[in-house]
C-alpha cells in the first residue's frame, strides 16, 4: 500500500508541478521581441531573416515547421549544441539523455502492456530497451558525476544537491537495468496494479526501483531538469519568436493591455505609481494628460 501511495504521489506531483511551471511560463506577459538568429524556420541557411527583404512588411513569409522540426530533432536526439561546443561533456550527456529517453519509452510501453496490448513480443522489446536505457543512464550519470566533481569549469557551479541527483539517477539506472534483466512481466503486472490503485505486488528489487523513480519524479519539477519542456518556450517564445505585430491581432491586444500595467520602479527618472503608457510618454519633469 505504501508503495502504491508513494508512486501515485510521485506521479501526481510530477504532473502538477510541471503543469504549474509550464503555466507560469505560458501565462507570463507578452514580452518585447528578443529573437536570435539563426531562426530555424527561416529559409536562409546562413541565418538571414525576412528583414533582409525590401518592404518586408508587404511580402509573404516563408516560415517552415519542417526546418524547426529538423533542428529540434538534431538538438534533442543528438545533443548537437553540446557536441559542437562542449565535446567532453557530450560523452556523459549523450548516454545520460538517451538513458532517460529510453526509460520514458519503456514507461509508455508498459502502459500499453498493462492495457493488454503487444503481448510477449512487446514485453521482450521493453526488456531490451529498458536494460539498455538503464545502463546508459547509469553510465551517463557516472560520467557526469565525475565531470561535475572534477572539471574546474563545472565544479564551482555544482551544488551538493546536483551531485546527489546524479547519484540517485545512477542508482536508478542500475536498478532499472537489473529489473529489465529479470524480464518485464512482473513490471507490467505492477503497473497494472498501480493503474487500478491496488496494492502493488513487487519484488524487493522492483519495489526499490519504483521507490527511487518516484522520488526522482517528486523533485524533478522543482529543478532545472524541466528544460525538457521549458526548452519549448526558450526557443518558440523567445529565440524564434519573430512574429511581426499586426493591428487587431491577439498579440496586439495583449501588448496594448500591458501599457496599462503599473510601474513601481523607484529611481528618480521613472515616475513611480503611473502606468507604463504614462511613464513612456512623459519625462519626469513633465505632467501627463489629465494631471
Amino acid at each position: 500500500m505504501a508503495l502504491l501511495l508513494w508512486v501515485w504521489l510521485g506521479c501526481t506531483v510530477f504532473v502538477l508541478g510541471c503543469a504549474w511551471r509550464a503555466y507560469r511560463y505560458a501565462s507570463a506577459p507578452e514580452h518585447l521581441r528578443w529573437d536570435l538568429y539563426p531562426v530555424a524556420h527561416e529559409p536562409n541557411a546562413y541565418g538571414g531573416s525576412y528583414l533582409e527583404e525590401k518592404d518586408w512588411w508587404t511580402k509573404p513569409r516563408h516560415s517552415s515547421l519542417v526546418r524547426e522540426a529538423v533542428f529540434m530533432a538534431e538538438e534533442i536526439l543528438l545533443l548537437r549544441g553540446v557536441w559542437t561546443h562542449n565535446r567532453r561533456l557530450w560523452w556523459g550527456s549523450f548516454p545520460f539523455h538517451w538513458g532517460l529517453y529510453l526509460m520514458v519509452a519503456v514507461t509508455f510501453g508498459l502502459a500499453a502492456a498493462a492495457l493488454g496490448l503487444g503481448g510477449q513480443p512487446l514485453l521482450l522489446a521493453l526488456a531490451v530497451v529498458g536494460g539498455l536505457g538503464g545502463a546508459l543512464l547509469a553510465v551517463g550519470s557516472v560520467v557526469l558525476l565525475y565531470l561535475r566533481a572534477r572539471d574546474p569549469k563545472l565544479r564551482p557551479y555544482t551544488a551538493p544537491v546536483d551531485l546527489m541527483n546524479l547519484v540517485l539517477l545512477a542508482l536508478l539506472g542500475i536498478l532499472s537495468a537489473l529489473v529489465a534483466n529479470g524480464g518485464m512481466e512482473p513490471v507490467a503486472a505492477a503497473v497494472a496494479d498501480l493503474a487500478q490503485a491496488r496494492p502493488v505486488s513487487a519484488s524487493t528489487l522492483l519495489a526499490t526501483q519504483m521507490t527511487v523513480a518516484s522520488l526522482f519524479l517528486l523533485y524533478l519539477p522543482a529543478t532545472r531538469m524541466v528544460h525538457f519542456f521549458s526548452k519549448y518556450f526558450t526557443y518558440h517564445a523567445v529565440r524564434w519568436d519573430d512574429r511581426p505585430r499586426e493591428a487587431g491581432s491577439a498579440l496586439d491586444r495583449r501588448l496594448r493591455a500591458a501599457l496599462d500595467f503599473g510601474v513601481d520602479w523607484s529611481a528618480e527618472h521613472v515616475r513611480t505609481g503611473k502606468t507604463w503608457a504614462e511613464v513612456a510618454t512623459t519625462l519626469p519633469e513633465e505632467k501627463s494628460a489629465g494631471e
Binding site: 550527456s93 563545472l154 510601474v263
Partner: peptide, 23 residues
C-alpha cells in the same frame, strides 16, 4: 509581471533553466 512585463518571460526562462553545463 507588471514592473517587468517587457522581459519577464525570457528572463524567467533564462534564470530557471540554466543547467550550468558551461557549453
Amino acid at each position: 509581471r507588471e514592473d517587468n512585463w517587457t522581459f519577464l518571460q525570457p528572463l524567467m526562462l533564462s534564470l530557471e533553466n540554466c543547467v550550468k553545463c558551461q557549453t
